[in-house]
Each structure stands twice: as C-alpha cells, then as structure tokens.
Design a binder for these strands. Structure first.
Lengths: 144, 144
DNA sequence: GCAGTCGTAACAGTCATGGTTGCAACAACC
DNA sequence: GGTTGTTGCAACCATGACTGTTACGACTGC
C-alpha cells in the first residue's frame, strides 16, 4: 500500500531530541532535526505539534527556543507516537456502502470490521511493547 | 492513515463468488459482483485479475463467461488475499535517506526496520488464521 | 456471424502526504 | 525598546495511490 512515513519520522525526531538532551543541550530546533531527517523544518514542526498535543514533547518560543521531551524516553512507547500521529484505521471499508439487499453486501462490513479490530489490537500491543528508549538503543547499536 | 479498501473488496468478491457457486451457478460475472459491492465492474475485474495471478480464482471468456474459485473457500486465507492485493509494507521509511553523518540518521532505518518487520509478521499471522469460509460464515451470521 | 464477457489501456477525480514560502507571535538578549 | 532567532500556522503546489469511468480489442458459445 506504500504507506506514509509519519511514524518513522516522529520516532526519528524523538530519538534525536532525547539523544541531544543527554549530550547536555536543553532544547533542539526543528531545523536541526530536519537536517538529520533530510526534510523540511515545517514538516518536523507539524509532526512535533501533534506530539505536543499528545503530551509527549514541549516547545519554547523566542530566541533560544526549541523542543524538549515532556516525558522520559523510557516512558514513551511507539503506541503513544502512533496514536498521536496516525488518525485512521489500518484497513478501510468500502468507499460507498455495498448493496444492503444482497446477503453478502449486507453482512460483509460487520464481518470484516470484527476481523480488522482484532488485528489492530494486536498491532497496538506490539507497538506498546517498544519504548523510544529501545529505539534509541537500537539506533546506537547500528554498525558504522 | 486512512488506508485503501482493496482487501475488503477482494474478500467481498471471493465470498460472493463462493456463495453464488454454492447456490448452483458455475460462474459469476464482474457486473454482478460490482452491483453487490456498489462499484464499477472494471474495478472488480482489476482486483480479480490480481487474485487470478495468485491462483485464487479462474476466469472464462466468451459468452457465458465469468469468474469461479480456483480453490475452496476453506483453503483461502485472508493472508493469501492480502499478499495478492497489497504490494507494499504497512509502514514506510523516510522518503529521502536521512543524514548518514548523524548518529540517529544513520541508525534509525535499521532500527525501525527490525521493529516493523516484527509487526508485519504478527499481522500476517493474524490474517493467516482467518479463512474465506470463516468470513462467509460471519457474513451469513449478520443480523437482518 | 452475433452476442456477451473478459482484458486492458487511458484518463479524470479525489485524497493523503510532503515540500515550500511567507508571515505573525513570541521571548531572550542587548 | 529594538533586534534576533525560533515556533505557529496558513496557503499553495507537487506527487502518488486509488477509484471510477469510458472505450475497445480479444475471446468463445451459440
């Protein structure tokens, strides 16, 4: 389906801020993060704005402004990020309602709905098992 | 992410063909299926063409032509349909490669890759647990 | 040969996403 | 109080995936 990269970029930004703060800096700017992710600062600000609404990061304005973590990396899971950043369901129903006069058209949506909900639940469980601290450790463990 | 409905429509089509054949008919036309799914016959033909390439259905041409199942509904899982119909991964990486000179930019892709592969594997396992026969039974069990 | 259906190309419309520009709001610092 | 650097946000365009639609050739039973 060639999905979007929002979750990837959001995790990238959080790991970057976390590492930067551990190196003694107070805040990170969207421009620095954008340079690391090789994208536009506005894209980063948009994403971090959603993470702020979810209570994962904070921002300061004015000179010397930037972004900082609102919670420790250990306490943020990929599920937190996913819910902050991905609005819709993994699988979609018909665009237009199927023929309700047909047996299949009438019953297919509740049937698939139940299946899809189960799958989304297991995906959420998987995402909830990974913290951003795990991600950062994996990042640092990558071979040069 | 507001995904696509290809898997839903494909399952709808297969269940429809399966039920139709159990009612004594040999083949189903794309027009009949499109009427049930409330879409265009060409959309159905395109999808069923991908299912045919995967060996799930067969088609006949000429007068009295149409589509029939190549395997029993019991032996077709949603994973078979998913693989026939959804090409890409669930989650995408960065559009443009991140800065390899940055520690995070260098390590983030292998880190996320590993996580995503694990999640896709569990999704596949879930999909493999549901047969189209299960789906049809769920469809028929829907309250009127 | 006729009729009905598939097979497929071509194109427009919609939507999500990403990239870009521009500018107001804000706050530290001088 | 002015300057400066950064966020916040709106507006717009480009791209790509998917859907819907039309058109027409290919095929086959009658």
């Amino acid at each position: 389906m060639s999905a979007n990269s929002r979750l990837t970029i959001a995790a990238h930004a959080l790991a970057w801020i976390g590492l930067y703060q551990r190196q003694g800096h107070e805040v990170a700017t969207s421009e620095q993060i954008a340079a690391s992710a090789n994208t536009n600062p506005v894209v980063i600000r948009r994403l971090l704005g959603e993470l702020r609404r979810a209570g994962l990061v904070e921002s300061r304005r004015g000179v010397g402004a930037g972004w900082s973590l609102a919670r420790e990396l250990e306490s943020i899971t990929l599920l937190d990020v996913y819910e902050a950043v991905e609005p819709g369901p993994l699988f979609a129903m018909h665009r237009t309602a199927p023929d309700q006069g047909c047996v299949v058209g009438h019953g297919i949506q509740p049937a698939m709905q139940g299946i899809y909900e189960g799958i989304e639940e297991t995906v959420r469980n998987e995402l909830a098992r990974v913290t951003l601290e795990n991600v950062l450790q994996d990042v640092l463990a990558a071979p040069r």
